[in-house]
């Protein structure tokens, strides 16, 4: 029987959860360089669910696809350390400025090339919080989508049973394969790196990375071809330029404003007994509390 192909869509994101003072430039724009790049948290939950699916199926392989600049290859190495079999980096200047629609178009072209039976991705990425790329990719490859998934209940080569986490409860659904699944942050956290895999794959590189390290003439890939991380461009996935980047994005950013707050007239207090006493008396008097 043919192996079941499981694909994880993962993204490298700036860590917007810890935005420090130096993260904003004086003109109010974002200083991306000051933010560490991390594996998008929900995507790690998605990777775990994909690995669980592989564990249960046995006869399966987990691939990782990420779109981003050269350094996003870090995401692929991290995935491989944790158990993924192989990864592809989708990288091209022409992707720059893509909104969710243009992004999902590019991803869908790469997905068609990989031809998976199942796709897992995080519910949303912390740099945009849109939760749009999963469903939009599903539509473009004509897969049913199951979103907000918290638990993999059962899987066979033909169907999958999943528990979804909704606002007011849970729902269990059965879907045939193929399908695209977006994984909620409340799902199982991702397993740790496997030390053996780290030793085996720590030199895994894209060609561009090797060039940047001035090792393009090294025999690395000749001796150990499994260390080569594939880089795919617009041409590799046969995408139409006009659907990519700024020109392929129906949403345009009209303006970006840094936030200027109108100062409200306020009462400034300290933590002294007298001040806190005044505060509580004030609140009780004005019947805000009590």
């Amino acid at each position: 029987m043919e192996k079941i192909k499981i694909l994880v869509l993962a993204k490298q994101v700036p860590d917007t959860r810890n935005v420090g003072k130096d993260a904003m430039k004086d003109d109010g724009t974002v200083n991306r360089g000051a933010l560490p790049a991390i594996y998008n948290p929900d995507d790690l939950n998605a990777l775990e669910m994909a690995l669980e699916a592989k564990d249960r199926l046995g006869n399966a392989e987990v691939y990782v696809l990420t779109m981003g600049p050269t350094r996003a290859a870090e995401i692929i190495r991290e995935s491989i350390y944790r158990g993924a079999d192989e990864g592809y980096l989708l990288t091209d200047r022409k992707f720059a400025g893509s909104d969710t629609l243009a992004t999902s178009y590019a991803i869908s072209k790469a997905v068609k090339k990989i031809d998976p039976d199942l796709i897992f991705c995080g519910l949303q990425a912390i740099d945009g919080d849109t939760a749009q790329v999963g469903p939009q990719t599903a539509e473009k490859v004509d897969f049913p989508q199951i979103t907000y998934v918290e638990k993999l209940v059962e899987i066979s080569p033909t169907q999958i049973t999943l528990k979804r986490r909704l606002e007011r409860g849970v729902e269990t659904v059965v879907a045939p394969l193929p399908a695209l699944i977006t994984v909620h942050g409340s799902a199982n956290p991702c397993r740790a790196r496997n030390v053996k895999r780290v030793m085996q794959y720590k030199h895994a590189r894209t060609l561009t990375e090797l060039k940047e390290e001035n090792r393009e003439n090294s025999e690395l890939f000749k001796d150990r071809p499994y260390l080569k991380i594939e880089e795919w461009s617009v041409d590799t996935i046969q995408a139409d330029d006009t659907h990519l980047g700024l020109s392929g994005s129906p949403t345009k950013v009209k303006t970006i404003d840094s936030v200027v707050l109108a100062q409200k007239e306020n009462i400034v207090l300290t933590s002294s007994d007298a001040d806190v006493e005044e505060l509580m008396v004030d609140l009780l008097k004005s019947r805000v509390i009590g």
Binding site: K264, N266, L269, S271, D275, V276, E277, L279, M280, V281
Partner: peptide
């Protein structure tokens, strides 16, 4: 956040919150 606050208390919340509880109990 102080810009939109009606009361801006500058201090350690570990110190301020217990005091708020105490004064609330005293006056309510």
């Amino acid at each position: 956040i102080n810009a939109i606050a009606d009361y801006a208390v500058t201090g350690d919340l570990m110190e301020v919150l217990p005091k708020m509880i105490a004064y609330y109990k005293k006056y309510s």
